[in-house]
Design a protein around this nucleic acid. Structure first.
Lengths: 335, 335
DNA sequence: GAACGCCGTCGAAGCGCTTCGACGGGTGAA
DNA sequence: TTCACCCGTCGAAGCGCTTCGACGGCGTTC
């Protein structure tokens, strides 16, 4: 490992001069700066590691807490993580990966040891056990997802409530009068995962506003679950013509299951989903959808965190407005 | 952040005594140790962070380099990453996430700055640009995947060659005489990704050994690609009765495509896959498969790395033997 | 032409931790 | 009873880096 004293010797200056030349925190003559930079290049020096941390400086590391709970869609989470890493790198930070029970213990550890400068927290529940820790302020944080009480926190998310409303608005505008929400697996609601609950709220309130008949069905994943829920929908809501799906891996099997029941999409049934655009576009019937912009959320989260670290004030909640993209799965009722 | 001097004051001893009491590197009286431990508990002290690194000690961080190239199956990679984090935590380490172009730059950065003590490298190509860096020994490493020249490296992987053979052996034993391999997307082979190439080798050599007619078809993902490849197989290999699939997201669409062509599985066609057990089991026809044990690979990789860090000698290559699980997709020819 | 001030650089201190050498007191051996 | 030794503890030094205060030399200014 090349150290700052090596560079200093090579450039014929003192270590402190090297430090200043690189950080720009004090004026350094052009000539000297150039010599320092040359030495850095020749030796392949990179600051950081040990001394930096010891000197009370930042570690330039962001922690990313991803619980990886059951029922969450892996590709969405992964995409998010990847975009966080990319954004962090663009701000000269690295990313430390925290998972599982780590969710809580990990945040504490990071806060206590100063391993990371800040943390991004994913998969937030309405009442999240990690909130007290985060609110204590010992570690700057940004949450993906908005808990019930966001005071004193920084949150960013898709506006899932508006997303739910948007889907229903779209269906209502097409003349559908009976709509159902096929949601995430039951455990997700039991955990009170924020985004899932908010989507239900939006769905329900928009349906009420439009005076539609509506119902909500949490649902597991897989072909069997899809078949079961499809049959149940047909049985319990014979007049059903509009469906909103909030369950990525279920979209395709569900379309298939409706097909087996003789229901054509969008002829008999209009389908709307809240999911990543790629999933919606590659379904067996391309699905009209509200995109979940995981990549953008990741980027935003990092930006917010970096600004917080710089001491800037940031908004408490950033809710991205949902955007609906029409595809082949929706049509006017009776068309 | 509570520091070691806080603990020392609280316990009425010197900082060095605290350090020794916690590390056990020198004998400390029972009474003192107990007082130190009490102080640690009361104050919530955790060593690490700044000073540790500065004092030339290890950072207790492992880097994980996941290129996230196109054509790799995201859930497999993610599962792997999760198991690495869990295993690392069990050894009191944290995990730093490196992605993308980071693959190369990131490893260099980690090596130069001492950000992490070691690195686990995924998605290894036969000729990987990262190898020289790793062989230089500046940073202990373990590769997931075995490059063409594994000398001087530590590698762990499923024995994909044997996996390919095992699938063919199984089909041959069932009496199939014409077999095809539906592989990963073309770009994976172009990149010379080690595991994909090895599987092809195994497939081909076993087919030759059994004197079977065989062919290899790289294939993209999605329903359209599945349909196209199915039609092509039927056209080019009319006598085909055995198929090996090495392409997770294609398995289900492929089964469906064969169905559309009037080919029943396993009646007309026997299907074998190399994929995670969960994928094989939840396909629309449960598929006889050789499991890709991502979780175990992650755990193994961490174990190896930890032993390397401890100065122990570790084997150059660890190849996990493939295990084939019979499910509903294979049957004797003409049964 | 002398005093002032500023620019560019350096030395030293200090961050939190580990580790080496030393030291004091108790114990066992002679 | 004395000496030697060892056990348990401490102080100091040092890891690589940043930062503060200081200092020397130059250009200004009256």
């Amino acid at each position: 490992m090349v150290k700052i004293t090596d560079v200093a010797r090579r450039a014929g200056v003192s270590p402190s001069t090297v430090s200043y030349a690189l950080s720009g925190k004090r004026p350094i003559s052009d000539a000297t700066r150039r010599r320092v930079q040359a030495a850095v290049r020749e030796l392949g020096y990179r600051a950081g590691g040990g001394g930096r941390g010891a000197a009370g400086r930042r570690s330039q590391v962001l922690a990313l807490a991803v619980p990886m709970r059951s029922g969450v869609h892996v590709p969405v989470v992964t995409q998010f993580a990847v975009s966080v890493v990319a954004a962090a790198r663009a701000h000269d930070h690295d990313v430390l990966l925290l998972t599982q029970g780590e969710g809580e213990e990990g945040i504490g550890r990071v806060a206590d040891t100063g391993l990371a400068d800040a943390v991004i927290v994913m998969d937030v529940q309405l009442q999240d056990t990690r909130l007290p820790l985060l609110r204590s302020g010992s570690l700057p944080s940004v949450l993906i997802g908005v808990p019930a009480e966001p005071d004193g926190l920084t949150c960013v998310d898709l506006d899932f409530r508006a997303a739910g409303e948007l889907c229903v608005d779209h269906l209502a505008r097409l003349g559908h009068r009976v709509v159902a929400l096929v949601g995430s697996p039951p455990e997700v609601y039991v955990r009170r995962t924020a985004f899932a609950r908010r989507l239900v709220e939006g769905f329900t309130s928009a349906a009420d506003r439009h005076r539609l008949t509506s119902a909500v069905y949490p649902c597991g994943t897989g072909r069997d679950a899809a078949r079961a829920i499809a049959e149940r929908l047909v049985r319990e809501l014979p007049a059903l013509t509009g469906v909103v799906v909030h369950n990525e891996p279920l979209i395709d099997p569900l379309i298939e299951a409706f097909g087996h029941l003789g229901l054509r999409i969008p002829g008999d049934l209009s389908l709307t989903a809240v999911c990543p655009a790629s999933v919606a576009a590659s379904a067996r019937v391309p699905v009209t959808s509200v995109a979940v912009p995981s990549a953008e959320l990741g980027t935003r989260a990092v930006h917010l965190l970096v600004r917080k670290l710089a001491g800037a004030a940031v908004p408490q909640s950033t809710l991205l407005p949902p955007r609906l993209t029409e595809r082949a799965s929706t049509a006017p009722r009776g068309a």
